[in-house]
Design a protein around this nucleic acid. Structure first.
Length: 595
RNA sequence: GGGGUCGUAGUUAAGUUGGUUAUAACGCCGGCCUGUCACGCCGGAGGCCGUGGGUUCGAGUCCCAUCGACCCCGCCA
């Protein structure tokens, strides 16, 4: 039988038929998910985006269709017409939403055949990612990945609705744009028309969205690709998507209010979760003190304590010397330390050494002191003081790291998360939002030998700190904020500088030369001189948000066509060498680094 | 740039102190089977052991190099 497509239209999806529709004549189209051939009757699970329906080929009902059905193999594309039947008692499949019905096929057309697929299209599969990425179009047939893409689409739509309702205007900004200093490595695009010149793909539409505020657009948003040529991680891809937002005539509170509403809207529609509002706020200093990171996971306690003052003059040299040199001694206390196995404990020092810690001391708290290599070096007062500070009870375990504040926080902040995972302190399916505020404006870079912008160079300093820009840049606080969810930074932004004199002072503090500033963003300085409104904004990593919502372990599972850790695409084999003609046209020559 | 894990049929894995014909499951092909739904039963095919070099009488196994996938550090304003 041929001509099925012109004679019939699909009447239903494979996921919607129920017992109430029994008796109807229906037409389904989809893929043969699985075939069960009993010699007589043949069952095929027909699959499409919406689900699976069992279709039945019975030689007594439709001999011709039954004969043709013998040819069906996995992933063949089928069109079937037949009568829907309620399954008899004992023949239903409670695991399928459509399990109470089956389609008794009267007519079949095999619309297309399929080579034997390299893996089965099950929701759960243990196929290697290499194979999945090579055959991504097949991997995307799997329900699990399709669900993620659907979630992503739903969240993007909800974002557009929410922002449009509040007067935000979606504006597209250029991809072929100008390289900016600071920040990540740029992806460059050669200009054929301008030999030797290059565009840069945007790391974010930062400057354009600020210019739109100068233009009086007032409220802007865009769901937009951004590009950063840095090494990849489980949650980092070279091209990723931001929800980018900018608003005029606002303060931090105005923006946070809008954003909390946005988060509530997308988490509701995405996964039916309604976060408590307002979101808690932590200053950067507090976050570092208590959690050791500027992106603390606040789903559990396990906070760090600083005991530097107690051990400053103690008999344990490492502690005392670290304190004297301006370092810190910080602790992490585990209630009932026996929950950690010997093996767990053995792995801890290696783990903190990844973050630069030279050692990890420990103490088991007893009724009458500690079991610890440290115990004999400390006075009773010092031990009691530490116990009091960390609120230790007998049976508890205390970890110590003595180092520079940066290393100690990094080591213990990451150990904290690791231990919480080991101890099962993180409730699955829980979500905890936190704003981090009052970031330092600059961080001193040892490699560059100068201050670098913590956020970016257009971030406004706190008004009271403007005078410090020229005298003590390290003390200046920025009007920047990050939104952290479950230990991931999902978004960050700031109130921007809207005065050109302040902008110049910041460039000066960054030791960017006048010529460089002029060449790189003279246009922004100029723009700021034409009546720029106070403005600010934020940008969210859409991929990371979806990843958290979906509970995905990798950002690749929420991106249709992701890249490998080496930034290649196993499906298309990109990147690839250009032809000689292409190079000539672009006035380019490839120079291979011979060691 | 650095540290780690891994690479054996289409897929996922096993493979002992180096030893003769490299296993298993699923998938695939053929046969049987009219109520299965991870259908069942019988039979069969399928291997550049990532690649290159070395040690050895002999290498999936040991050594070196290299390629690739993943995780992490650096990096990611």
């Amino acid at each position: 039988m041929t001509g099925f497509m012109t004679r019939y239209k699909r009447t239903h999806s494979c996921g919607e038929l129920r017992a109430g529709q029994a008796g109807e004549t229906v037409v389904l189209m989809g893929w043969a998910h699985r075939r069960r051939d009993h010699g007589g009757v043949i069952f095929v699970d027909l699959r499409d985006r919406e689900g699976v329906t069992q279709v039945v080929f019975n030689p007594e009902i439709a001999p011709e269709a039954h004969r043709e059905a013998h040819r069906i193999r996995n992933e063949y594309v089928l069109a079937v017409r037949g009568t829907l039947r309620e399954r008899l008692e004992g023949m239903t499949n409670p695991q399928l939403p459509t399990g109470e019905v089956e389609l008794m096929v009267e007519e079949l057309e095999i619309l297309n055949e399929s080579r034997t697929p390299p893996f089965v299209m099950e929701a759960e599969t243990d196929v290697s990612e290499t194979v999945r990425l090579k055959y991504r179009y097949l991997d995307l047939r799997r329900e699990k990945i399709q669900k993620n893409l659907i979630l992503r689409s739903t969240v993007a739509a909800a974002t557009r609705n929410y922002l449009a309702e509040r007067g935000f205007i979606e504006v597209e900004t250029p991809f072929l744009t100008k390289s900016t200093p600071e920040g990540a490595r740029d992806y460059l695009v050669p200009s054929r028309v301008n030999p030797g010149m290059f565009y840069a793909l945007p790391q974010s539409p930062q400057i354009f969205k600020q210019l739109l505020m100068v233009s009086g657009l007032d409220r802007y948003y865009q769901i937009v690709k951004c590009f950063r040529d840095e090494d990849l991680r489980a949650d980092r891809q070279p091209e990723f998507t931001q929800i980018d937002i900018e608003m005029s005539f606002i303060t931090e509170d105005d923006l946070m209010n809008v954003i909390e509403g946005l988060m509530a809207a997308i988490f509701k529609v995405g996964i039916g979760m309604e976060p408590e509002r307002p979101f808690p706020r932590l200053t950067w200093t507090e976050a570092m003190d208590r959690y050791g990171r500027d992106n603390p996971d606040t789903r559990f306690g396990l906070e760090l304590e600083n005991v530097t003052d107690i051990v400053r003059n103690c008999g344990f040299k490492v502690f005392a010397e670290t304190a004297t040199r301006g370092g810190v001694v910080k602790t992490l206390k585990i209630e009932d330390g026996r929950r950690l196995s010997r093996k767990d404990l053995d792995e801890m020092p290696g783990y903190v050494s990844d973050f630069g810690a030279k050692g990890l001391a420990w103490a088991r708290v007893n009724e009458d002191g500690w079991t610890s290599p440290l115990f004999k070096y400390l006075t009773a007062d010092e031990v009691a003081g530490i116990n009091r500070r960390v609120k230790a009870a007998p049976g508890d375990l205390i970890f110590f790291v003595a180092d520079s504040p940066g290393v100690a926080n990094d080591a213990l902040g990451n150990l904290r998360v690791r231990l919480a995972q080991k101890l099962g302190l993180i409730k699955p399916g829980s979500f905890s939002f936190t704003w981090i505020t009052d970031f330092p404006m600059f961080e001193y870079s040892d490699t560059e030998k100068r201050y670098m912008a913590t956020h970016h160079p257009f971030t406004a300093p706190v008004d009271d700190d403007i005078a410090l820009l020229s005298t003590d840049p390290g003390k200046v606080r920025a009007r920047a904020y990050d939104l952290v969810l479950n230990g991931s930074e999902i978004g960050g932004g700031s109130i921007r500088i809207h005065r050109s004199d302040v902008q110049s002072m910041v460039f000066k503090a960054l030791e960017l030369g006048d010529d460089e500033v002029r060449a790189k963003f003279g246009f922004l300085i100029d723009a700021l001189e034409y009546g720029t409104p106070p403005h600010g904004g934020i940008a969210f990593g859409l991929d990371r948000i979806i990843m958290l919502m979906a509970g995905a372990e990798s950002i690749r599972d929420v991106i249709a066509f992701p890249k490998t850790q080496k930034a290649t695409c196993l499906l298309t084999d990109a990147p690839s060498p250009p032809s000689m003609e292409q190079l000539m046209e672009l006035s380019l020559k490839v120079v291979r680094d011979k060691e």
